[in-house]
Simulated scan of single mutants.
Amino acid sequence: MEFQCVHTKDGAPIFHFGPFPVGTNNIGEFLGIVEGLKYLQKENKLEMPLYTDSQTAISWVRKKKVSTNLERNEQTQKLWEMIDNAILWLENNTYKNPILKWETTKYGDSKADFGRKR
Rank of each mutant, 00 (worst) to 15 (best):
G18F: 06
L37W: 02
E47C: 06
F3P: 00
T56P: 01
T94I: 11
Q4E: 10
A57R: 05
L70R: 01
I87N: 02
E103P: 10
M48N: 15
I27F: 03
I27D: 03
L46Q: 11
T24P: 11
L46D: 11
M48F: 10
W60Q: 00
P98E: 11
D109Q: 06
N97F: 05
L46G: 09
G115V: 00
W80M: 07
I83T: 01
E29V: 02
S67L: 10
E71W: 08
V22P: 00
D10H: 14
L50R: 12
Y51L: 03
M82L: 12
G36T: 11
S67T: 07
G36D: 07
E74T: 07
R62C: 05
T94K: 01
W60D: 02
D53P: 03
W102E: 14
M1S: 12
H7M: 13
V61T: 07
T105E: 13
E81I: 01
E91C: 01
L31V: 08
L90R: 05
N85G: 10
D10L: 13
I83L: 06
N69Q: 04
K63F: 05
R62T: 04
Q55D: 12
P21R: 13
H7Q: 04
E103F: 11
T24V: 09
F114L: 00
G11C: 13
K45P: 06
Y95W: 13
N85L: 13
G36A: 14
T24I: 08
V66S: 00
I58G: 06
N73R: 03
V61S: 00
W89T: 01
K42H: 11
D10G: 08
H16T: 02
P49Y: 08
W89V: 04
D10W: 07
E103M: 14
A112M: 11
G115W: 03
Q55H: 06
I83F: 06
R118C: 06
G18C: 03
I99F: 01
L50C: 10
D113L: 01
W89F: 12
T94Y: 00
K38I: 11
M82Y: 12
S110A: 09
A12E: 10
E91A: 15
R72A: 15
S67R: 00
